[in-house]
Amino acid sequence: MVSHAIVDARSITAHHPLGTSTGHVVELRGQWDLLVRRALDVSTLAVELAALSEPEFLSLCDWLQDAGRGLPFRFLSVHAPTKQLALPEADLVELLLALPPVVDAIVVHPDVLERPERFAALGRTLVIENMDGRKGTGRTAAELEPYFAALPDAGFCLDVPHAGSIDPSMGVAHDLLDAFGERLRHVHVSSVDEDCHHLPLTAEDEEAFGPVLARCRDVPWILEADLPRR
């Protein structure tokens, strides 16, 4: 019989697969070779290439066409732009559709979608993220429901601190998993400050998030801040 003495004390960093977002590496913004090298220091298995502004996104599209095939990650998501949006939405969708097959998921913020149904052509590659407490919509299961109704093939990205910013008891996070857990594709993990800026995960949040993350043991966890130091 397996010994009771073998106790597997897990921490966030022991999760498989764990990866990082490039979004918090502000000093290297737009330098995709260097950003990916930094991400590889965290994990060769999972990554999120975050192109939060449209100019960054355009440079990422070019870079991925050349470098995409050589990337080692088993899970690669691209965070679609949420700022400095100048392109017509239909043109943005065309660019997202043209991303190379190495991209497993494309994360969008629901609050910036003008006409969600335009994104339907992205099929199961599209992933909708829940929003933080500062945003006007996309925060709760009820607010996300119309987006998934318009995009029935879309996956779900649970941003754990976003949900925690609305309900520190994490009830909203559990509601989101109850409603969209079958669509769950990956999670975002970090702590956030009062303005919802991402910070390395604190020990308190790690404990608070534990029961939520324990429902997400099969999907990649993407860190949206530096690895927590313990």
């Binding site: 073998i6 998993l177 029961p211």
Partner: peptide, 20 residues
């Protein structure tokens, strides 16, 4: 009710005891 949601008072299941 979603069965994965832990009941109140249950700690982090990330620490799983190794018992049959």
């Amino acid at each position: 009710a979603w069965p994965g949601r832990p009941p109140p008072g249950v700690g982090s299941p990330l620490q799983h005891p190794v018992v049959p």
